[in-house]
C-alpha cells in the first residue's frame, strides 16, 4: 500500500486533498490508490443536496454539519459547481457559507468543478466520496447545483437525496410537475421566512400525494430557515428516518449497488474515451473517418461500428 493511502487512512488532511486532485486529473497514481482504498469504504452515510441556484444549499449544509458535529459525527463535504464550457475554468463559491466550519478538524470541505460532465456531477465525485469515507468521515454530504432536467445523477451516489425548493418560485414547482424532481427522498422548502411558504408547501404536498400514492413511504416535505438555523433538527431526524427505512426494506444494498454501477460505467466510459481520442491509439483514424463522413463516403453509424470493432476485437 502506498504512503498516500496509509496517510489517508490515518486522516492526514494534505494526503486526502492531494489524492482528490490526482483523481480529478485522472492521474495513474490515483487509480492505484483508489484500488487500495476500496476495502476501507462503505461506512459513511452519503447525503445529496440539490436544488436551484441560490436556494440555500450551502447554508443548509453548514447548519446540518454543525448539528452532526454536536452529535459527535465527523463530516466530509463535496461542493460541486459548474465548470464554464467556454473557458474550462470555474468559480467555486460554496465555501463562503461554510467558512465557520473551516477550523474544525472533524470537517473536510472540498470544492469541485463539473469539468465537462453533465448531470451536475463531476466524474471524480465517486472517488472523492470513497476517499472521504475511507479517511473516516461518518457523514459525506454532496452539493450539486440543479439547473434543470439533467441534474438527477446525484441519486446514484447519495443514500438520501434532499431537493431544496424556495417559496414563490413557480419554476421549481414546474420542474416538480414535470416529474424531474421525483428524485427527492426529502423535500426541503428553505427560506421559509419568505412570503408564500404555506402555498409552496401545499403545492409540493399535493404533488407528493400523487407521486407517492400506493407506495409504502411518503416523501416528507419540511420547511427550514437555514439562515437562522431553524428546522435543521427536524431535517436531520428525517434523514436518519430515511436511512432506517432503507435498511429495514433492504433498499440500502440496492442503493449502494446503484452507486457502484454508476461508478463502473463512468470508469469504463472514461477509459474508452481516452483510448479513442488518444493521439497514439485512434485519434488519426477518427480524423480520417470524419473526413469520409463529410464526403459522404461513409456515415456516422458505420464509422462508429468500425471504431468499436477495433476496440472490441
Amino acid at each position: 500500500m502506498s504512503d498516500i493511502v496509509q496517510n489517508i487512512l490515518k486522516g492526514d488532511q494534505r494526503s486526502i486533498a492531494r489524492l482528490i486532485t490526482l483523481a480529478e486529473n485522472n492521474d495513474k497514481i490515483a487509480t492505484t490508490a483508489m484500488k487500495d482504498i476500496h476495502p476501507y469504504t462503505g461506512n459513511a452515510q452519503v447525503i445529496g443536496i440539490t436544488g436551484v441556484m441560490g436556494s440555500g444549499k450551502s447554508t443548509l449544509i453548514c447548519e446540518l454539519t454543525r448539528l452532526y458535529r454536536k452529535l459527535g459525527k465527523t463530516v466530509g463535504i463535496i461542493a460541486i459547481d459548474p465548470t464554464s464550457p467556454f473557458s474550462g475554468g470555474a468559480l467555486l463559491g460554496d465555501r463562503v457559507r461554510m467558512m465557520e466550519l473551516a477550523m474544525d478538524d472533524g470537517v473536510f470541505i472540498r470544492s469541485l468543478g463539473t469539468r465537462g460532465m453533465l448531470g451536475g456531477l463531476t466524474s471524480a465525485v465517486y472517488d472523492v466520496v470513497e476517499i472521504l469515507d475511507a479517511c473516516g468521515k461518518d457523514v459525506v454530504i454532496v452539493e450539486t447545483v440543479g439547473v434543470g432536467q439533467a441534474e438527477v445523477d446525484i441519486i446514484k451516489i447519495a443514500d438520501t437525496t434532499l431537493v431544496v425548493i424556495v417559496p414563490g418560485l413557480g419554476d421549481s414547482i414546474q420542474t416538480l410537475k414535470a416529474g424531474v424532481m421525483e428524485i427527492a427522498d426529502i423535500y426541503v422548502i428553505n427560506k421559509a421566512d419568505r412570503p408564500g411558504v404555506e402555498q409552496t408547501i401545499a403545492e409540493v404536498e399535493s404533488l407528493v400525494d400523487i407521486t407517492c400514492s400506493g407506495k409504502d413511504r411518503k416523501t416528507p416535505v419540511l420547511s427550514t430557515i437555514a439562515k437562522q438555523g431553524k428546522g435543521i433538527d427536524v431535517l436531520l431526524q428525517e434523514i436518519e428516518d430515511h436511512r432506517s427505512y432503507l435498511e429495514k426494506t433492504h433498499l440500502f444494498e440496492k442503493q449502494r449497488r446503484l452507486r457502484y454501477e454508476a461508478e463502473l460505467v463512468e470508469i469504463i466510459r472514461k477509459r474508452l474515451m481516452s483510448f479513442i481520442f488518444d493521439e497514439q491509439t485512434c485519434k488519426q483514424r477518427i480524423n480520417d473517418l470524419l473526413d469520409r463522413i463529410g464526403e459522404k463516403k461513409t456515415d456516422p453509424y458505420t464509422a462508429a461500428e468500425e471504431i468499436l470493432g477495433t476496440i472490441l476485437k
Binding site: 473557458s87 470555474a90 463559491g93 465555501r95 467558512m99
Partner: peptide, 12 residues
C-alpha cells in the same frame, strides 16, 4: 482567473 481556465475557490 475563471475566464482564463482556472478553478477559483472563493472564500469571502
Amino acid at each position: 482567473l475563471r475566464d482564463a481556465g482556472m478553478e477559483v475557490i472563493y472564500t469571502g
